[in-house]
Write a protein that binds this DNA or RNA. Structure first.
Lengths: 346, 346
DNA sequence: CTGTTAGCGCTTTCAA
DNA sequence: TTGAAAGCGCTAACAG
């Protein structure tokens, strides 16, 4: 009695076993599970009983080989760190679950080539439809999804060119409004703490929003007041330290970070440098995370519609898989949340 | 030319298409992909070329129907919020990826019945093996995994009864050491901020660790100094407020929270109540998250071996799937990280 | 309402 | 080293 190394199929019942026990054909077992309303209630009850008795779980591979659908939806996000996408994927899962779909999650660590590879694996495993974060992706990703007939929706941004279905918010206007707020407080030298913009439309748009607001009052954003960071507190801390190293008369009195993680990293750098927040430096983030909200002082940020994006994405994908109407583009509202990290320059 | 509503198979090439183009049989295509060393190098090259040309991806469902393996590994975690498990799942994915397996992630929101249901879906979809968080699970979960021959490993704790393979650390000793530290600082009234212990062995063990340390010096943990919270900052804040509402002579001068999220919620409650940290209240957490580390003052916590758990879990599962040797139980080291949130009572 | 039948795309004998 | 053929477990089409 050796163990089989692979996932063995000890004691696994199949549809014929259930059929035999219930005294019907395997087709009726299948119908009972998939179109119960087409089966006589009495027969149905007998089948259900047999299913329970044998602890029958339909074989997903066989089912999807035949039906060309797995009822699995993939969400491919940049990273699970800092829980930036957690509330969206939670909302997505909840909505999918309610319609009998399951969620498959994967992360690509901000590497679009990895995203393509991982998505290919999921396509291979039969995932029916996809949610991605952002508008920037490898062209090969779209052609693969096209080839294999997999619906998808891009999130976190709105595709103004309307080439791809998308659900998000206006990233550019979000940072534009934050910057206007800083300008209204009297700041004139405003810095930007951003992710690398290549392959990251959110970072690009958010940077553009800062420049928009500055341009409205005839100001510019000199290159020396822009620092780039990878998505990690420590990296953001170092990037901010570079801005702080500017001579006093060129150093920003306020910094717009393109997300809360960067903003908190910037706060760390200020604490280390003995710079008082918000008297000597104002800082803003984007995403309104707990990380930012619990800092001292609390981080001024933008509440982005993370839950709404997840729910809407689920609804769109389900609608498309089931051949129903849907809105291909949705731009959802955001809201500024003022806290103690912003004030008039001291 | 209507669009098919479901994931259609437009332009999808199959093994026969590849075979035809390469002038071989579909069996040879299969061998080229799965046992390339058994195929003549020249033939192999021709097949590879055809694969690329047709952008062929093997049909995962058909493959797993035949071979009884999907090379998918499932990780079922309590929640994606607060990134508590993010670094573990990242490490897991990296290690799996390196061996050609893919990761399927799901969350159960601390609901063990939901965990069972979700795992059932994954079993149906053919997931080969599983990682779970914690030692407490529905008995039906284990019998299902047994029935379907799916290897699994429990993480985040060590199963002293050795009934189940597990990889984790000594939760009890972690909070015991934190509590000893508080006692050494001179605290005598120590409180506990915990998750509900039912179905949560980590919370149970961590609470026991606090009681252990207190018992060592002849102290007890009265019920009024224990507050329970769900895993959310706000809930923890309210739970802490209940401890703060005790009359001064019974109110704790230090609180051990069973994780960093609770500890930060406790900090929020103290700030609201105008209680100075750490002079009037010491607080400790577990997990050493960025959320805790960036607070003012920084949160004293325990660095748990989150990355190591993920890597070790991947290695064990792969070893078992491939019939190799493995260590069924692993207890990994943790480390206390002292920060400003703990001090002698003021 | 239910059964019969065929076949999804692949891997795996077995034979050549 | 390669090909022919069987069949994994299920569901869709059709017949009754």
């Amino acid at each position: 009695m050796e163990d089989k190394p692979q996932a063995a199929k000890v004691g696994r019942a199949n549809a014929s076993d259930v059929a035999r026990l219930a005294g019907v054909s395997s087709a009726t077992v299948s119908r009972t599970l998939n179109q119960p309303e087409q089966v006589d209630p009495e027969t149905r009850a007998r089948v259900q009983q047999a299913v329970t008795k044998l602890r029958y779980l339909p074989h997903g591979a066989a089912r999807s080989l035949r039906s060309h659908r797995t009822r699995m939806i993939g969400a491919v996000v940049p990273s699970f760190d800092y829980a930036l996408y957690a509330r969206t994927t939670s909302a997505l899962q909840r909505r999918l679950d309610a319609s009998g779909y399951s969620l498959v999650l994967a992360e690509h660590h901000y590497d679009l080539a990895a995203e393509l590879r991982i998505t290919g694996q999921l396509v291979q495993h039969g995932v029916d439809a996809f949610m991605f974060v952002g508008l920037d992706h490898e062209p090969a990703l779209f052609s693969m999804l096209e080839d294999y007939g997999r619906p998808y929706v891009l999130t976190w941004g709105v595709d103004s060119g309307r080439q791809h279905p998308s659900i998000g918010f206006d990233n550019r206007r979000a940072t534009c409004e934050l910057t206007r707020h800083l300008l209204a407080l009297g700041h004139r030298r405003i810095g930007l703490l951003s992710a690398a913009v290549e392959g990251n439309d959110r970072a690009r748009e958010r940077g553009a929003g800062v420049r928009d607001a500055l341009a409205e009052v005839g100001l510019e954003l000199p290159a020396e007041r822009v620092a780039y960071s990878t998505i990690a507190l420590d990296s953001a801390r170092l990037a901010m330290a570079r801005l702080l190293a500017l001579p006093p008369e060129r150093r920003p009195s306020a910094v717009v970070a393109t997300n809360d993680v960067f903003a908190v990293g910037a706060m760390m750098a200020c604490r280390e440098a003995g710079i008082d927040l918000p008297r000597q430096m104002s800082i803003t983030g984007v995403d309104n995370t707990d990380l930012g909200a619990t800092q001292t002082p609390g981080l001024t940020s933008v509440r982005t519609p993370v839950v709404e994006i997840g729910t809407a994405a689920a609804e769109q994908l389900i609608a498309r898989l089931e051949g129903r109407e849907h809105m291909p583009q949705q731009c959802l509202p955001f809201k500024m949340v003022m806290r103690g990290s912003t004030a008039a320059p001291g």
